[in-house]
Amino acid sequence: MIGHTFGRMSREGSDDEMFGKLYDINVIKRISPYIWRYKKYSAIGAICTLLSASLAVLIPYFIKIGIDDYINNPNIGIASQKSGLIKISLIFGLTMFAAWVTNYIGQIYLARVGQYTLRDIRIDMFSHLQKLNLNYFQKTKSGSIMSRLMGDTSQLQESFSIVVMTLADILTLVGICTTLLIMNFKIGISSLSVVPLLFIAVVIWQPVAKRAFITVRIAISQVISSFSENLNGIKEVQNFNREDNNYKNFNTQTKDHLNSALKAQKLSSALLPPVDILTSTAIIIAAFVASKLILNDAAAIGVIIASVLYIQRLFDPIRN
């Protein structure tokens, strides 16, 4: 089972070539059996997370109902307004509470799946290392093995959570776009006109950011590898007076990691201002269209307020 899961650990060329792909279907296939061991936890976490995303989409719509049907409705009396607002407030509060509870449960179970998966992968990798012949350890640096065993496996911990959160973001986007178009088609279609610009910004940003984050992964792998090798061979280092040379090499590697991490952080931060600008632009467009509709009594105040709230949430997945 272990051999089938990991296959051959030794490969020709540098180990850093393994970082060349952002998403590798073979890696996903190898992780799937580990996640499947905890299918009950996985199902609970996924269902709760998706349910939380669905409930969160309803919250602005309840605000719209409260404003248009009760606060700004001259056709009903004060008593009906009060009772209606109390009812919609209770529904609003219960929905928010349910969204919080389902999100909390989902995060707990997804984290549990990630921790259990990480533990099983490390145990199987350790068991697999015991069965490898000496030629593998002669050709492979001990630091690289430690980097794979401790550093890279940690990245797998969040893999299932990322998949579920991506599905939740997609569900949220579909729900927001659909609700915007249903409430008022003109306001909805005008506010969504900036979405193509967002996709263009992401398409331009993603390849550059991908290379930067892969560079960070390679750099931290080299740092962990160098640290582990120097620690394991500390007697040889001291016997041959290699302290200064090893210190200089390690200092250079840590600086490379620092520079690559700072560059990646800059690229990560560079996407947020365009997103904020597009969010503001969408709100301005929606307000401009809504002002004309209000003058012609073609739109209600609650629809406009709910639309603004939905537009703000529309770009949250990109910010995350």
Rank of each mutant, 00 (worst) to 15 (best):
I2G: 03
R8C: 09
S10C: 01
G13L: 03
D15E: 13
D15I: 11
E17S: 06
M18W: 15
F19G: 08
G20D: 14
K21I: 06
Y23D: 06
D24W: 04
I28E: 01
S32H: 09
P33M: 00
W36E: 02
W36Y: 04
K40F: 09
S42L: 12
S42M: 11
C48R: 04
A56L: 11
Y61P: 13
F62I: 02
F62L: 08
I63R: 00
I63A: 06
I63T: 08
K64Y: 03
G66Y: 05
I67D: 03
P74L: 05
N75W: 14
A79Q: 15
S80G: 08
Q81T: 00
L85T: 02
L85Q: 01
L85P: 04
K87D: 14
K87W: 14
S89Y: 12
S89A: 14
S89R: 08
S89W: 11
I91W: 15
F92Q: 07
G93P: 13
L94F: 15
T95K: 09
W100F: 15
V101E: 07
V101P: 12
I105G: 05
G106W: 03
Y109W: 14
Y109V: 13
Y109I: 11
R112V: 15
R112T: 15
Q115N: 07
Q115V: 08
Y116R: 12
R119I: 05
D120K: 08
I123E: 11
D124M: 03
Q130F: 06
N135V: 00
N135R: 03
K139L: 02
T140F: 09
K141S: 11
S142E: 14
S142K: 15
I145H: 07
R148T: 09
R148W: 11
M150I: 00
T153H: 09
T153Q: 07
S154N: 13
Q155E: 09
Q155C: 04
L156H: 09
Q157L: 04
S161D: 10
V163N: 00
L171A: 10
T172N: 05
V174N: 04
C177R: 01
G188N: 04
G188M: 02
V194S: 01
V194P: 02
V195G: 01
L197G: 07
L198R: 02
F199V: 03
I200V: 08
A201V: 13
V203I: 12
V203S: 06
Q206E: 03
A209N: 07
F213G: 02
I218S: 01
I218T: 02
I220H: 05
S221P: 12
Q222W: 01
I224D: 01
F227S: 14
S228H: 10
L231R: 12
N232D: 11
I234F: 04
E236S: 13
V237K: 03
E243Y: 09
D244H: 00
N245C: 04
K248F: 12
K248G: 05
T252A: 05
Q253D: 09
K255Q: 08
L262Y: 02
Q265S: 03
Q265M: 04
K266T: 00
L267E: 11
L272F: 14
D276G: 09
A282T: 02
A282H: 02
I284N: 01
I285K: 02
A286I: 05
F288P: 05
S291I: 14
L293S: 13
N296L: 14
D297P: 14
I304S: 10
L309P: 15
I311Y: 07
R313G: 13
D316W: 14
P317T: 00
